[in-house]
Structure formats: C-alpha cells, structure tokens
C-alpha cells in the first residue's frame, strides 16, 4: 500500500500524493519512520536509477520507533544521513537549501508533521509549496499548535488532549497551517470550565 486513506476534510488540509522520480539537477529526500518505504519504492522504478548519483537522503526514525535506516543505506545514493530527530537535522537542511540551485527536486515522506516542516523550509528558501512532492506513510499522529499559548505539541493521538506547554484541554481541528506545519488546537472547556469529554484515540 502506498496511499493512506484520509477522511474527507476541509480545504486548508493538505492532500498528499505518491513520490515519483522528478527531473532536475539534484534530489533531496527527507523522510521519517515508514516514509523510508516511499523513498525505496521510488528508487525501485527504473527511471530513478540515474538519480542516485545526485541524491541526498536525510532520514529520522519515527516517533513510534520505526527505523528503516538499513533499507535506505542499501540504496547507495550519493549522500545518506540519519538524524536522530527532525530538530537535529534542521541546520543541515538549512545549509543544503542555502547552497542549492533551481532545479533541485525535494521529496518528503512519512508523517504529516515531517512533510509540512520540510515544505515550510522549502517555502522559506523561496520554492513554491507545490514544488515539494509529498507522500504520507505511517502514523497519522498530528502536530498541533495551541492557539492560546502558541506551543506546538508533537505526535498528538488523542482528542481532546492536554497541551504539553500550558496544560489546557484542547480539541484538534482539521484547520491546518502550512507556515506553522501544524493543526490547530482550541480549548474545549472554555465556556464550561472542567467539562471535558473523555479523550479518544483519533489519530493512530
């Protein structure tokens, strides 16, 4: 399976495709967890063979522990880097983008939070959002910004959940900010303090 089935949503929520070999002078892949499979699937295509010498893969294991480093290493691309987390890879990514020329192809695969953060960095570097290919794999856990304290909570599975910064009970909207690479969390008991419905695991 390459495509996650998503429930119908609102127009701010991104939709994702399937990675395919792009035409360009250089290829930058950023993936987390199961996203490695999307990258491997791309390189399994015949037309991707000649991309390898110009490809750079940055990979981080998933928050769920999924680690497919070996699969990606086996591809034999020009540059492979395993980062322990997205945060730790940010300065490397920024350097790669600062040095890059037009013609660079960017691919992001894995969780929505990872893909959105890659797209946001690419946009900050001056590329159109649409220039980043994205394929969802793995967890549907969400990256959520608390609209009240502005703190971002990673890997949100429950709805409602407690903001990891200010502690308010937040319900998770589908409204999505590409700039923040996050969904929006809004206090659920603002009108009736203390009346918080039981959390359910909505994002697996």
């Amino acid at each position: 399976m390459t495509k996650t089935m998503f429930e119908p949503s609102i127009t701010s929520r991104p939709v994702y495709g399937v990675l395919s070999p792009g035409v360009g002078s250089a290829h930058l892949f950023v993936a987390d967890g199961e996203g490695a499979d999307a990258v491997c699937d791309l390189f399994a295509k015949a037309e991707a063979a000649e991309m390898k010498a110009a490809s750079h893969i940055i990979y981080m294991p998933g928050a769920n522990g999924c680690d497919k480093t070996a699969d990606l290493q086996a591809l034999g691309v020009a540059q492979f880097y395993r980062a322990p987390s997205f945060a730790s890879a940010q300065s490397r990514l920024a350097k790669v983008l600062a040095d890059a020329h037009m013609g660079l192809q960017i691919y992001a695969a894995g969780t929505e939070g990872l893909m959105a953060q890659v797209a946001a960095l690419a946009q900050a570097a001056g590329l159109p959002y649409e220039a980043v290919q994205m394929e969802h794999r793995g967890s549907l856990a969400r990256r959520v910004q608390c609209v009240h304290c502005k703190g971002v909570t990673e890997n949100v599975r429950l709805d409602p959940f407690h903001c990891s910064h200010c502690g308010l009970s937040l319900f998770v909207r589908d409204h999505f900010s590409r700039r923040l690479a996050a969904f929006q969390g809004v206090n659920i008991d603002a009108e009736d303090p203390g009346q918080v419905p039981a959390s359910v695991e909505r994002f697996k």
């Binding site: 127009t11 701010s12 609209v147 502005k150 909207r173 999505f176 900010s177 590409r178």
Partner: peptide, 15 residues
Amino acid sequence: LDFDIGMSFKQWHAP
C-alpha cells in the same frame, strides 16, 4: 491571524 497568516483565500476560509 497568527495561525492563518500565509494561507491562500480558500485555506483561511476553510472552517
């Protein structure tokens, strides 16, 4: 505004 800034016309009207 902090959440919606940067959005397209239909994105910010999505809700």
